[in-house]
Simulated assay, not measured.
Amino acid sequence: MGDVVPFRKPAKKSPRKGMCQHGFHKWVVCKEKQFDVKQGKLVTVYRCERCGKQKVTAL
């Protein structure tokens, strides 16, 4: 009979990026930058609270 191999629980992912790895970001409006100089338009900047990724939408 072979040796018994003990199983370990997998390490938990960091709670900061756990949901964001699967595309479930928590978007919050960032009010620091509201005007895009290159486009010359007002923009809304969204920043994910968990991972810090940004997305921009023009009005």
Rank of each mutant, 00 (worst) to 15 (best):
Lys13Ser: 08
Gly2Phe: 09
Gln54Trp: 03
Val4Arg: 13
Gly52Asn: 03
Cys48Thr: 08
Lys41Gly: 01
Gly18Gln: 10
Thr57Arg: 05
Cys51Leu: 09
Thr44His: 01
Thr44Gln: 00
Gly18Val: 11
Val5Glu: 05
Asp36Leu: 05
Phe24Asp: 02
Gly2Ile: 01
His22Gly: 04
Gly23Met: 05
Lys41Ile: 07
Val28Ile: 11
Lys53Leu: 11
Phe35Leu: 08
Gly40His: 07
Pro10Asn: 14
Arg16Thr: 10
Thr57Tyr: 06
Gly2Arg: 10
Lys38Ser: 07
Ala11Cys: 08
Val4Thr: 13
Gly40Ala: 04
His22Gln: 10
Gln39His: 11
Gly18Ile: 09
Gly52His: 03
Phe24Met: 06
Lys31Gly: 02
Lys26Gly: 00
Lys55Arg: 13
Ser14Asp: 15
Arg47Met: 11
Val29Cys: 09
Lys33Trp: 08
Phe7Asp: 15
Arg16Gln: 09
Lys13Arg: 14
Lys33Phe: 09
Gly18Tyr: 10
Trp27Thr: 02
Val4Phe: 13
Val56Trp: 09
Gly40Glu: 02
Lys38Glu: 05
Asp36Cys: 13
His22Arg: 08
Lys26Trp: 06
Cys20Ser: 13
Phe35Ser: 02
Glu32Asn: 06
Thr57Trp: 04
Lys26Glu: 06
Gly40Phe: 01
Phe7Cys: 13
Arg16Ile: 07
Val45Arg: 01
Cys20Leu: 08
Pro6Thr: 03
Ala11Gly: 08
Ser14Glu: 15
Val37Ser: 01
Leu42Cys: 04
Gln34Pro: 00
Cys51Asp: 02
Lys26Leu: 09
Trp27Arg: 03
Lys55Leu: 10
Lys33Pro: 00
Gly18Asn: 08
Cys51Thr: 12
Arg50Ile: 05
Gln54Glu: 11
Val56Ile: 15
Gly23Glu: 00
Gln21Asn: 15
Cys30Tyr: 09
Lys53Val: 14
Pro10Ala: 04
Lys26Gln: 07
Lys33Thr: 11
Met19Arg: 10
Gln54Ala: 06
Val4Ala: 11
Phe7Ile: 09
Lys9Ser: 07
Ala11Trp: 02
Met19Glu: 11
Val56Gly: 05
Leu59Thr: 00
Gln34Glu: 04
Ser14Ala: 15
Lys55Trp: 09
Pro6Asp: 04
Val28Tyr: 14
